[in-house]
Design a protein around this nucleic acid. Structure first.
Lengths: 143, 143
DNA sequence: GTGTTTGCAAAGTGTTTGCAATTTA
DNA sequence: TAAATTGCAAACACTTTGCAAACAC
């Protein structure tokens, strides 16, 4: 058995476990996508970028399924949606407390650890409203 | 001369001046939109909400022109685009330093003065990148 | 008059959905 | 086998664009 194949099987097993834990049936497509998303380091993807990647890896998954899967993973708490660009939706495999640098011209997101950053002086929300989350986007440009 | 008419003329004159300053021809449509946008308090609009408002006030402006005008005003520095929702673009008449509360379920934006809020601990961006702007969105919900 | 702006309708983009065929358990 | 999932294509919402007619200066 070659290395790639062995890795492939190990990855699939890990991905399958993660999906089961989340209450999602480990279908071929979900296992493939989970393998790409969760078994590397933290990642930021769009539906299109993930679809491209899975397609290039030789696996056939429709774009509609990628969209559906991203939302299912998000609902299951495996992903977090990041709103930084009016044109497309990003999904982040890091679901913990953190913020982002965003380089709009290249669609590049970079994590900022939650501990390093602090937002002070947030006023009390108007009556009847309470704070859900504080998002910080540090927009950067090439110098 | 009635009150409404007098106010209407005064508003139009002010709006016309503002447009001229910004280097934009004071066409009927631009004067109407500028009147709605700039002569009240600070406002947050979408293309659709502004189009509805101008239409209800009895003036005919096409939605395409509203979109174009919002972008022209933004380029001229009269408006600032706020990215908080994947589904629609908001434009803010307050172009100064400030942040926002956002109530997603109702599409409601509320300004937070820039002086009241402080973001500490933003790491140095990766080499080759520099900070353009720091956006803070305090997402709130009804309690 | 001359160049700008408008409005319409058509095109475009990213995303969602209905439903038959397929797959999972 | 029963229920869940997929893929396709069509539908969708929002936004942009091409171009002839209307307008500002």
């Amino acid at each position: 058995m070659g290395k790639a194949s062995r890795n492939g099987k190990a990855l699939a097993a890990l991905a399958t476990g993660r999906l089961r834990q989340a209450g999602l049936r480990p279908t071929r497509q979900r296992v493939e996508l989970a393998g790409l998303l969760f078994l590397d380091c933290d990642r930021h993807v769009t539906a299109e970028s993930l679809h491209d990647q899975v397609t290039k890896s030789g696996v056939k998954v429709s774009l509609a399924t990628v969209y559906n899967t991203l939302h299912q993973f998000t609902q299951a708490g495996l992903l977090r949606q990041v709103i930084v660009d009016a044109a497309r939706s990003y999904f982040d495999t890091n679901t913990g407390d953190h913020q982002h640098f965003f380089l709009e011209s290249e669609g590049l997101l970079i994590d900022i650890p939650g501990e390093s950053i602090a937002v002070a002086g947030v006023p009390t929300p108007p009556p009847g409203l309470s704070v859900d989350r504080v998002d910080v986007v540090v927009r950067v440009r090439r110098t």
